[in-house]
């Protein structure tokens, strides 16, 4: 049977696992108890940290694939495709991180946005990822494009650890790293920790499923471009032959 989509047995299983995990995250997250400090708004803990984590994972995958392309020994077109696919999904998750963070910030901080280190660096990360995707759209020789975008990916990766530790290095409105607060009076309650961990798993599975499909779509796009180019060359040759006669 001719395959008409980028689905396979593996992606189907991955997709189902992602859906189940996401459904469980939403169900658990929305039924979390109200807290003294944040009332019902702490329920956003099930999705926001998981989204942020996945944005970092996507950036790291993009950077590692870019390094694999830059190293002559491992250079292959597949790394460039993987880097581009992961960056697109990374931009989506970074945008969601900013949106859900702002939505959480409004009732708890009183503002949707403030130019503190964590928020500013997150916005910078999104700008760098969008810049990376724009670079990939500039018409150029595939090798030149891959080199340019690989350098841009490495630049974007620098922001990830700085952003992660920003809440400790600078005075920010954003709270400290949830998992780093180990004192008993500050540590997260078990149900919140469980919901957050499930959110991490669900978002990672969603990312993995999207990534597999995005890489396959990128391969199909590339194959179509090559076919279109070959057809155009063939047509020009045929025209030249007709004119020569």
């Amino acid at each position: 049977m001719k395959r008409t989509t980028t689905s396979s047995g593996l992606t189907m299983s991955l997709g189902i696992a992602a859906l189940v995990a996401l459904g469980a995250t939403v169900a658990l997250g929305l039924t979390l108890p109200k807290t003294v400090e944040q009332a019902e708004y702490s329920r956003l803990i099930a999705i926001h940290p998981g989204i942020a984590w996945t944005a970092y994972v996507a950036c790291t995958v993009t950077a590692l694939a870019s390094i694999a392309w830059l190293l002559p020994r491992t250079r292959a077109a597949k790394w460039d495709l993987l880097a581009g696919a992961s960056a697109e999904i990374g931009a989506l998750f970074t945008a969601l991180m900013l949106i859900t963070g702002s939505i959480w910030g409004r009732p708890t901080w009183g503002v949707y946005w403030v130019w503190d280190a964590r928020l500013t660096l997150s916005a910078l990360l999104l700008a760098l990822l969008l810049g990376y995707l724009a670079i990939r759209q500039v018409p150029a020789d595939p090798d030149v494009r891959a080199r340019r975008s690989a350098m841009a990916a490495l630049l974007a990766l620098v922001v990830v650890p700085v952003n992660h530790f920003a809440v400790e290095w600078w005075r920010t409105l954003h709270q400290g790293r949830s998992l780093a607060q180990l004192t008993p009076e500050d540590s997260l309650d078990g149900s919140f920790l469980g919901a957050m961990a499930l959110g991490f798993l669900a978002m990672t599975l969603v990312y993995a499923w999207l990534l597999v499909h995005r890489v396959r779509v990128a391969r199909l796009e590339e194959a179509r471009e090559e076919t279109a180019l070959a057809t155009a060359i063939e047509e020009r040759r045929a025209e030249a032959t007709t004119l020569a006669r």
Binding site: G29, I47, I89, L210
Partner: peptide, 30 residues
């Protein structure tokens, strides 16, 4: 609770929209 629903709603709608776009594109190209 409006903010919580907005956070969950926007996240799920965005992820679903991107997944549908991806599957449609793959069907068109495949």
């Amino acid at each position: 609770m409006g903010y919580v629903w907005a956070g969950y709603g926007i996240t799920l709608a965005t992820l679903a929209a991107y997944a549908v776009w991806l599957l449609r594109r793959s069907r068109r190209l495949g």
